[in-house]
Amino acid sequence: MKILTKSYLETINFGTQLAHYLQAGDLILLDGDLGAGKTTLTQGVARGLGIKRPVKSPTFTLIREYQQGKYPLYHMDMYRLENSSAEELGLQEYFNGDGIVIIEWSQFIKDQLPDHYLRIQIVRLDDQKRQLQLQANGQHYQELLTKFD
């Protein structure tokens, strides 16, 4: 499924709408070039979960945790792991936990990912427009995508 957002605000709003359909244990993979809008989309999800704290890119911390929403949000950035391992991060605890996990640059930990997730490839078309390509892996995520038809 492909969705076009025409502004920063529309990307935020899509994330907010997506959050309304998420449940504990959900895994969202966000892939796209630098500046594509991965953190912007995550900010929308956080807003939809009722998180008031500013959401920043976790590039240097690898994982940022936001506990005060409808569900905890675990925002991860695996970019710095391109040439190293994520084994010591305890990712399975997050995947099997009570929150929503959003991972940027998931290709760097593909051997550690569960079988079921929603992947969103973000393609920057120009300064404002983004094409979101949603791919559901697993029945739960296929059902989630029907909410956007």
Rank of each mutant, 00 (worst) to 15 (best):
P72M: 03
H75M: 05
L91P: 04
Q112C: 05
Q67M: 11
S85Y: 06
Q92K: 14
I102R: 00
Y74G: 04
K110P: 03
P114M: 04
D115E: 15
L113F: 03
L118Q: 06
F95N: 01
G97L: 09
L89S: 01
M76H: 00
R64Y: 06
Y74S: 01
Y117K: 04
V123C: 09
H75Y: 07
E65D: 12
N83R: 10
L125Q: 13
L134T: 02
L81V: 02
A86H: 07
I63M: 07
K70N: 05
P114N: 06
Y117H: 10
Q68D: 13
L91E: 00
H75C: 05
R64E: 13
W105G: 10
S106V: 08
Y79K: 01
G69K: 13
N96F: 08
T61D: 01
Q135H: 12
H116G: 05
V123Q: 11
E82I: 10
P72H: 02
P114K: 04
G69V: 13
S106K: 01
G90V: 10
D127L: 11
Y94F: 15
T59C: 06
L89R: 09
Q128A: 07
L134A: 05
S85K: 06
L62I: 15
Y74V: 02
I63W: 02
L125N: 11
K70R: 15
I63Q: 02
G69Y: 14
N96V: 08
L81C: 12
L118P: 03
F108K: 11
Q112E: 05
E87V: 12
F60D: 06
D127A: 13
Q128Y: 10
R124M: 14
N83W: 01
Q131P: 07
D111H: 14
E82P: 01
I103T: 03
R130L: 07
Y66Q: 07
Q128S: 07
T59N: 11
R64I: 01
S84L: 01
L81W: 07
A136K: 10
K70A: 06
N137E: 15
Y66K: 07
N137H: 15
Q92A: 09
Q107R: 14
I103V: 14
Q133N: 09
G99V: 10
I100C: 03
Y117R: 02
A86I: 05
I120D: 08
L81K: 03
N96C: 05
E88K: 15
Q121C: 08
R80M: 12
V123Y: 07
Q92T: 12
F95L: 08
Q128P: 03
G69W: 15
N83Q: 09
A86G: 13
N137T: 12
D98W: 10
W105E: 11
S84V: 03
F60I: 15
E93T: 13
Q112K: 13
G97E: 09
E104V: 05
D115L: 14
R124P: 06
N137Y: 15
F108M: 03
R119L: 15
P72I: 01
V101G: 02
T61L: 12
L118I: 08
E93S: 13
L113V: 06
L113Y: 08
G90S: 08
H116C: 09
R119V: 09
I109G: 08
Y79D: 09
